[in-house]
Design a protein around this nucleic acid. Sequence first.
DNA 1: GTGAAAGCGCTAACAC
DNA 2: GTGTTAGCGCTTTCAC
Lengths: 333, 333
Amino acid sequence: MNATIKDVAKAAGVSVATVSRVLNNSATVSSTATEQVNNAIKELGYSPNFLGRNLRRCETNVILAIVPSTEQTFYSEIIRGMQNSAAEHGYDILLSTSNSNYTLEMHLLNMLFNRTADAAILLGTQLDAKALMEFNEKCFIALCCERAEGADVLTVSVDDEGGAYAAVEYLIKCGHKKIGMISTNGAAASSLDREKGYKQALSDNGIPFREEYIYKGTYDFSHGALGFDYFRGLPSPPDAIFCVSDILAASVVKKALSEGYKVGEDISVCGFDNILLSGMYTPGITTVEQPCYDIGRTVVKELIYNINNNSKTNKKIKLPYKLIERETVKKLV
Amino acid sequence: MNATIKDVAKAAGVSVATVSRVLNNSATVSSTATEQVNNAIKELGYSPNFLGRNLRRCETNVILAIVPSTEQTFYSEIIRGMQNSAAEHGYDILLSTSNSNYTLEMHLLNMLFNRTADAAILLGTQLDAKALMEFNEKCFIALCCERAEGADVLTVSVDDEGGAYAAVEYLIKCGHKKIGMISTNGAAASSLDREKGYKQALSDNGIPFREEYIYKGTYDFSHGALGFDYFRGLPSPPDAIFCVSDILAASVVKKALSEGYKVGEDISVCGFDNILLSGMYTPGITTVEQPCYDIGRTVVKELIYNINNNSKTNKKIKLPYKLIERETVKKLV
DNA sequence: GTGAAAGCGCTAACAC
DNA sequence: GTGTTAGCGCTTTCAC
């Protein structure tokens, strides 16, 4: 079987303690001993068993990132940010998908209790504030991208309200007055925050809010088209639509195109996220960019701070958005 | 701190052995003892420490899936397939991204040696056949989606050659004769196999292969447009283009559209993968679907078979593709 | 049906 | 600068 630290010690003619010391640079070891140990390691093809090490140290240096699925391409940059930040602190990020399934998410979170991971980052969760707070008491967790209303847990996300405000203000500045919004009817705090930004921008610009100008569906692609159909059925349909995600925006664009509309001319649409799709689409979709890489870096940095200081700062961090102008918004002025 | 098996034993008034037995259903325990133990577990909020268990058992029941990045949405279904299959066998799938970086990939593979995971699945790798074979001797690994030329390692992928053949034959059946291909110039075996299918379909249908009808770039979005430009510069440009990926196909479509072409009319294009984008695009992109879910299920099933039987079957499994007709291919006949 | 005890591989006092 | 050794939490053999 695999060589153990004992085998290395024997081969190097030293004690296991010395081997451990060179393995971890934990104390001064004579250069001769160091060399002997390193030779033995090489010879035996030794690799330390982390199960033993982790058991002893009561830590794994693994952070579990739980995503609903990897279908959202914008997670990709977030994860890269997480990894880079983690690597700087000697941690690894391991990902797992919950498929938005409560039982599966609980199973994954249970990895914190069974010591498979030191901490977990939730990118969207099925748990309510109460359950999250309970976890937060016993474990190190963080929310990423999606805050949970009433949950006092470390959270890093884009400034959802500000981003939506900027998008709608941009639409208004472009001369649009009849602005609809496609949102979601679940409990997603990001959607709620974006609705807030939408309303605020309207009101700050003297445009009355109309209840019928807000369509609520799901995040599913089909709901963009559905929203578009709904708006068309209105006596006075909006001529610009702000969507809570780029997927939804793409759906609106596709539907409008298929109905013979010229998007960016007859109808304007703006998304949120700036996923790759938005730049690839024809016409290019105007949207609000999330600082994904920074979000990933930040959440890991803060989480590791908490781990190292055995603290629970529970900060709520909102990172800046960026408006990306492309071709789906008509400039009337 | 966290309760241990000892605490449970004490609280239940039994030995740790008995607790372990009820935890693992490993031997008959009297119903009274079982009840006492379960009560103690609940009371103490006990969760077994897997580091201890895994160390003792010399296994983790974790399979590491190493992906270049989660940017490719079609990994999403593959991972779902992996997870479902893994769960059936009591395993968890943990994901990690290598960013196509050799050092990072080696770091992740090293988790096999340090016993963080029992096996690894590589979805695209930077390692060459020799390195893969070496790993395969000492560890349980599998390749997924992308075979490695000359590597005798368990591999599960779509039938790349057949899929490409089907796509090109479809183009031919639609009346196209001047068919270009956008491929990649790296060592990606899937691209090579798809080129083979392209050539075979041509030759089987009496269409001579033209060297200048094959453009090789990278997987990067920009290379679709680059390929399109290249083809346009030819004295006799192709009127149909088969792309090695949907991303590349989308790029061709976008570029053609921006140049005033009517895609599916003036020019035909067919992709590969059937990622979500292809259905969302306008026009919908005709493509070859990979059986992602099945690929994921199959690779995990075979890998766990190997683990359980301590065998290395090294099967090469090719799963069937499916042609998805949408709107980017003109039917001339 | 149950308990005592060895030991998985490692780290870190502690002693020298 | 180095070695001895206890013990992290668990499973499992062996006795009873």
